[in-house]
Simulated scan of single mutants.
Amino acid sequence: MPHIDYFFATMSPFTYLAGTRLEEIAAKHGATITYKPMDIGQVFMRTGGTLPKDRHPTRLEYRDQELRRQAKKAGLPLNLRPAHFPVNGAPAAYALIAAQNAGGGDLGKLVHAYTGAVWAEDANLADDAVIRACLEKAGFDPALADSGLLSGAAAYEENTEEAVRRGVFGAPFYITETDERFWGQDRLDDLDAHLSGNL
């Protein structure tokens, strides 16, 4: 059975623009997914990347254009200057890890709810009430926001270490069980083709 390790950041605009297409592709091919939220800042710094705040203005201008174009292609609303970005996305990641361990909801919807809260709704993802609302929207117990914080923090750190070790350098990032790597929501069609045996 195909498997995908999904490395992402809870505040990544490109993770938001992926929507739930990964889950649709996985369902089409009978693939399983392990969700691995990571500290994207650490990944950038340890793999030769640069945080957006430290990038040259020409790179930031291109990023804005690309985000606008990709949002239009995906049919998703996008605020290029969200009211609460950046904030600490780790508590949301801990809650997602707790949700993955608990089961019973839709993790793809939860990732999209988190990122949509930031990039479409101007919500503060560091706010416990926002995390709880996202959990509930995705079919999980909102109390998971307060569950397993220590184990969630440990898993988040382990995911970040694993990401660096396995060649992840951005988000979203998809790795198959055969170590085929796909970076960015704009490579989901390639992941689909690979799982179909056509790439």
Rank of each mutant, 00 (worst) to 15 (best):
E177F: 07
E121M: 15
D54Q: 00
N88T: 06
G49A: 10
A95Q: 03
G108T: 00
G105L: 00
A26T: 01
S151A: 15
D192F: 07
G104S: 13
T115H: 05
G103L: 02
L191M: 08
Y35E: 00
A71Y: 09
Y156P: 01
D186Q: 08
F44L: 14
N159V: 03
A83E: 15
D189Q: 14
A154H: 08
Y6T: 11
L17A: 08
Q42W: 11
S196W: 00
D146R: 10
P91M: 05
F173P: 00
D5E: 14
K36G: 03
Y114I: 05
G75L: 14
K72R: 10
T20C: 09
Y94I: 03
F85Y: 15
G30N: 08
F7E: 01
L195Q: 03
D54R: 14
Y6C: 07
V168R: 06
L110M: 15
R187W: 15
F182M: 06
L144W: 08
A98E: 01
L96A: 10
C134M: 05
A163F: 04
G170P: 06
D54I: 02
G148D: 13
D141K: 03
L188F: 06
D5H: 13
P82S: 11
Y62Q: 08
K36L: 12
I4T: 00
Q65N: 13
D179H: 02
Q185Y: 00
E66M: 15
P86A: 10
S196E: 13
K36Y: 03
P2L: 08
P142T: 07
N124M: 06
R69S: 14
D146W: 09
L188N: 04
I33Q: 00
A18L: 03
F14I: 09
R63G: 08
V43C: 06
L188V: 05
H56D: 12
Y6V: 02
S147A: 13
D128V: 15
D186S: 13
R166I: 10
L125R: 00
V87G: 10
F169E: 07
G49M: 07
F140W: 12
G89C: 09
A74V: 08
